[in-house]
Design a protein around this nucleic acid. Structure first.
Length: 358
DNA sequence: CGCATTTGACCGGA
DNA sequence: TCCGGTCAAATGCG
């Protein structure tokens, strides 16, 4: 029998262990010949581990068991978020799940839903998570009562081909136009490993990917987002009022993904499934995202793409942000479609990272 | 030509 | 009836 650890507890332990391990490595590295980058990476991971652990504690404390550890657990407590930033994820408690239903309306109602916030740094460019690893197709845009910016609706590109009913809504924040609230609905059931879209986990990766012709589309889109955003912010918000920026970028998923062949493995932070989050504990938050719930567009990444070519490309016209990765689909994340049951998550999951396994 | 976005119409819940 | 969400024809783009 399994100890009665709750998912949160497991995750918490895992995070703490992870942090400890990283700290140990760092100690070793400090005395060895390690690059500043390596050390920085370790520090980031340590910090993220502890941040997640703290979040878990906070979350557990505030929600108590009410949420039901099992089921909700996946919900994010935003592993991503850190530093107590405003809750970035909100979960709609309705997590009933099961998108097996054929009835679409019913399906929609029962789909799990959670919200994330992505912050775009207009000064430097795009944010990291241009894509969440999934391929989205915009199917609508609506002006929302009381909201300054229109809301954009996206659905999985593979809805028809793979019966994947995941959708997301992107709403630009009224208060802070640099923040986009992205509400995800439903789990991805699509399987697009073949696309082998590399995950964007690190700047380098982005760079590589973006430099490939194959990624032109995305690059372009990213740039548009940036430019549009910049234009809006730098010039006048009014400009964007109707042009909205639906940043398709999404995030969470983006991050996770293990870069194969790379020493960095960024596990899912929270992915797409809400549930998940914690699920995976262990691991690592990509440094770039470690600081908060928001995803910031970091200069580094920017340099990798947007910046490179014309960031300024359409400062005057603000085409809508497009889906960050239409053509590329998805990701590595496939497996992340996990279910709530931790036990099922195992596929490659590094719970044992620290020699700890439940 | 195929696929994605745009956008007004339509649907359904509150 | 209002409003959020989705559909689908028109249009654009590579």
């Amino acid at each position: 029998m399994e100890p009665v650890w709750s998912w949160e507890q497991k995750t918490l332990i895992s995070e703490l262990i992870e942090g400890m391990e990283m700290a140990k490595q760092l100690r070793v590295n400090l005395g060895a010949t390690s690059s500043a980058e390596t050390r920085e990476a370790l520090v980031q991971r340590i910090l993220s581990s502890y941040e997640k652990a703290l979040l878990i504690l906070k979350w557990s404390g505030s929600m108590g068991q009410a949420q039901g550890v099992g089921a909700t657990s996946g919900v994010p407590e935003s592993p991503i978020s850190i530093n107590g930033s405003p809750g970035s994820e909100d979960f709609d408690g309705g997590f009933r799940d099961n998108q097996d239903q054929q009835d679409s309306s019913k399906k929609r109602k029962t789909m799990p839903r959670w919200t994330d916030k992505v912050k775009v740094n207009f000064e430097t460019g795009l944010e990291g998570p241009l894509e969440d690893g999934y391929s989205w197709r915009k199917y609508g845009q609506k002006d929302i009562l009381g909201a300054r910016y229109p809301r954009s609706y996206y659905r999985c590109t593979y809805r028809n081909t793979q019966n994947c009913w995941a959708t997301k809504q992107v709403q630009r924040s009224d208060e802070d136009p640099t923040i986009f609230e992205i509400t995800y609905r439903g789990k991805h059931t699509c399987f697009h490993g073949s696309q082998s879209v590399p995950q964007p986990a690190s700047p380098e990766k982005h760079e590589q990917r973006l430099n490939h012709h194959n990624s032109n589309h995305q690059l372009k889109q990213s740039q548009e987002i940036i430019s549009n955003s910049r234009a809006g912010l730098l010039m006048n918000n009014e400009c964007l009022e109707n042009k909205e920026i639906a940043s398709p970028f999404s995030f969470p998923s983006t991050q996770f993904g293990c870069m194969k062949g790379n020493d960095q493995c960024f596990p899912p932070l929270m992915l797409d499934e809400n549930n998940f989050l914690d699920g995976f504990s262990s691991s690592f938050i990509p440094p770039s995202q470690a600081e908060s719930n928001y995803y910031f567009i970091s200069p580094n990444r920017m340099n990798n793409f947007g910046d490179v070519h014309n960031l300024h490309r359409s400062e005057s016209d603000l085409p809508e942000l497009q889906s960050a990765n239409n053509s590329a689909a998805n990701s590595p994340i496939l497996n992340l479609d996990f279910s709530l049951d931790p036990a099922e998550i195992d596929p490659n999951f590094p719970f044992d990272t620290a020699g700890f396994s439940f």
